[in-house]
């Protein structure tokens, strides 16, 4: 059953560098050595290169069908589960990898495995009618417009940049969300998210600046480059909501960053997290965010004179 377990060590592509360094603009990658780097992976499919993908599929099929027959499974969701489990087992056995590598593989092939698009792992399929431009406005344009409107850019300025008017915008802002809701694979929504994160790079928006203060500009730059700052503000915003404040407004008031710009950066971090999935890194930032959220919560509690049950003690 085991094919050639160890691929050649030459010409190895480090496509799955762990995401310890989630710096958005930096090219440097942190060498977070993986114990499992003996296996060489195809950069597209993340299959090990020491076996044939067809052989892999055949093996999964063989094991799954045998189990389905033996257990007399008929429900489609249970059948899907059987395939899911064997695909994981075979992948981890053939590649001698850890579960993080398997999750990266599963995310990368989410559409094929689950029929569902995965953030950061989805490319636009031009034959998909749900992705055809509406009144000449493609999904990438629509997402960029939403990001900028969400950060307070005037509507007229946006309409001018894209050569549309309020009437056309009304149609776009009805039809694109409707397509997202119709799409059972979530491709439209996931691509919307990916494009939302790239709004700044949209060629038609180059002349348009969000009306940011100098401080806001600097903070936005820092947000893009410093994951700790990003997770701190995410925690702070959450704490603000829990203390009866408008978290988005709080970020704007205190850091000068609009919600559209903030979410745009959030999409980028989410993409990186999916593409370079590493449970230790995820946990690390998650704990950091919780810690910061608790710090801000304490601050907000003090500002309102404490929490309602502070005086009830054990």
């Amino acid at each position: 059953m085991f094919k050639k377990l160890f691929g050649s060590n030459t010409g190895k592509e480090e496509v799955n560098q762990n995401a310890q360094n989630q710096n958005l603009n930096s090219d440097e990658t942190n060498d977070f050595d993986s114990e499992y780097e003996e296996t060489e992976y195809d950069p597209e499919t993340l299959h090990g290169t020491h076996y044939d993908v067809d052989d892999f599929e055949e093996e999964v099929e063989r094991l799954a069908q045998a189990w389905i027959e033996q257990e007399d499974i008929t429900s489609q969701s249970e059948i899907n589960n059987v395939f899911f489990n064997y695909r994981r087992d075979v992948y981890m056995a053939w590649n001698q990898c850890d579960s993080d590598q398997y999750i990266r593989f599963d995310q990368r092939n989410s559409m094929a495995h689950h029929g569902i698009a995965s953030m950061g792992n989805t490319v636009e399929d031009e034959s998909n009618p749900l992705l055809a431009p509406v009144h000449g406005i493609a999904l990438r344009d629509y997402a960029a417009i939403c990001a900028k409107l969400g950060s307070g850019v005037a509507e007229d300025e946006i309409y001018k940049a894209f050569g549309i008017d309020a009437t056309i915008w009304g149609e776009l802002n009805t039809i694109w969300p409707a397509r997202m809701a119709e799409d059972t694979t979530f491709s439209v929504s996931v691509l919307f998210g990916q494009y939302f994160g790239e709004a700044d790079q949209h060629p038609k928006l180059q002349g348009i600046k969000t009306n940011l203060s100098e401080e806001g500009e600097a903070n936005l730059e820092r947000l893009k480059n410093d994951p700790y700052f990003y997770y701190e503000l995410t925690g702070a915003r959450q704490a603000a909501y829990e203390y009866g404040m408008d978290g988005a407004q709080w970020i704007l008031d205190n850091f000068g960053i609009g919600l559209g710009d903030f979410q745009s950066v959030a999409m980028k971090y989410m993409e990186l997290q999916n593409q370079n999935f590493d449970s230790n890194v995820v946990l690390h930032y998650h704990e950091y965010q919780d810690e910061k959220q608790a710090e801000y919560a304490e601050k907000f509690a003090a500002e309102q004179g404490g929490n309602v049950a502070d005086d009830v003690e054990f």
Partner: peptide
């Protein structure tokens, strides 16, 4: 906002 504060 109020509801979110009470939930908090």
């Amino acid at each position: 906002r109020m509801k979110s504060g009470i939930d908090g």
